[in-house]
């Protein structure tokens, strides 16, 4: 573990923490533009966080410590997730501690805590949100796992950093399985980040909301932490998508400056990805909640087909 890799790791985390709200802002801005609304500022998410941190936290009388602790654990999970996803450099000292499977586990751990916290107050909306969140989760998690498996079979490793290194060295190549995995990943990422066909981040309509129902009882700094964690999750998912399908331009730890070269590439990739996400959200319509399992099952099965094709073609 050299100083270079330590600094790369540090930079990876700091960039994730700082850039994540910007990515959310970017997506929101493009969505507004595409929908002919006047767009909020790019910095709006930062202002929101700042405002929420300033406000006092209002807790229900009977909230347990679990309720207060969950936002911190959620943020911790998402930060760790961002720390092990190679966005800037593949020379990350933390990465060997958690491979792709553990990454899925990390998301699941965050989900478990936030769902439990939503049930803690004992309101109708909280439990409803928890149930729906777990519904999305139990289909999205295996689908994500299968996506990761398809790619790790090609790269011969479940470690994300090794996957990126090997795929990047190989140069552009088209694998049948990766195409399926890519489509499945897009579906999963939309569902997991509470995006339009599954959930609408802009609504508080009880019949449709999932994520907002979960966090209805949170306020002040706890809400800020959750919002930040949600941004980080989007960032982590973007990072995973880039790592699996567009692994080029990530530094492999040759020199400390390589990380700095990787940064503009990352920002460019994220900007394009965020724009595509906004387009995708604009052209699709919200699904009824009972179509969501179908949507996710499709993702899951596509990922399985990807893995099958991979095995069958003997790559």
């Amino acid at each position: 573990m050299s100083a270079a890799s330590l600094s790369a790791q540090f930079l990876d985390i700091v960039i994730a923490l700082l850039l994540a709200p910007l990515l959310t802002g970017w997506v929101n801005q493009w969505r507004a533009r595409l929908q002919n609304r006047s767009a909020p500022s790019l910095l709006q998410p930062y202002r929101l966080l700042h405002k929420l941190f300033h406000k006092e936290s209002v807790l229900a009388e009977h909230a347990s410590p679990l309720f207060r602790g969950a936002p911190y654990i959620l943020l911790g999970c998402m930060t760790l997730a961002c720390a092990i996803v190679p966005t800037l450099s593949t020379d990350l000292p933390l990465a060997p501690a958690a491979d792709a499977i553990a990454l899925v586990g990390l998301f699941a751990l965050g989900r478990l805590f936030i769902s439990l916290a939503a049930m803690d107050i004992g309101t109708a909306f909280g439990t409803l949100g928890a149930r729906r969140e777990m519904l999305v989760g139990f289909l999205a998690e295996p689908a994500l796992l299968m996506v990761l498996f398809s790619v790790s079979q090609i790269a011969g490793s479940t470690s994300l950093t090794t996957i990126v290194e090997r795929l990047a060295d190989q140069g552009p190549a088209i694998y049948t399985s990766v195409m399926f995995a890519g489509v499945a990943f897009t579906l999963v990422a939309l569902a997991e980040n509470a995006r339009i066909p599954v959930d609408n981040p802009a609504t508080h309509l009880e019949l449709t909301m999932i994520h907002e129902a979960l966090i209805l009882e949170y306020s002040g700094r706890h809400l800020a932490l959750i919002e930040w964690a949600a941004s980080l999750k989007l960032f982590a998912y973007s990072g995973i998508g880039l790592a699996l399908f567009f692994p080029w331009g990530v530094s492999e730890g040759q020199s400390p400056f390589a990380v700095l070269y990787a940064l503009p590439v990352l920002i460019l990739k994220l900007a394009i990805g965020g724009f595509l996400l906004a387009v995708l959200e604009t052209i699709s319509a919200k699904l009824r909640i009972f179509r969501v399992p179908e949507f996710l099952a499709t993702a899951f099965l596509l990922a399985v087909i990807g893995m099958l094709v991979n095995n069958l073609q003997g790559h």
Partner: peptide, 20 residues
């Protein structure tokens, strides 16, 4: 931190039986 009654979208007639 301030403690207060649960918000639940401003619905005041919450009972424990309304949970899932």
């Amino acid at each position: 931190v301030r403690r207060s009654a649960p918000w639940d979208c401003g619905f005041p007639w919450q009972t424990a039986r309304m949970q899932d």
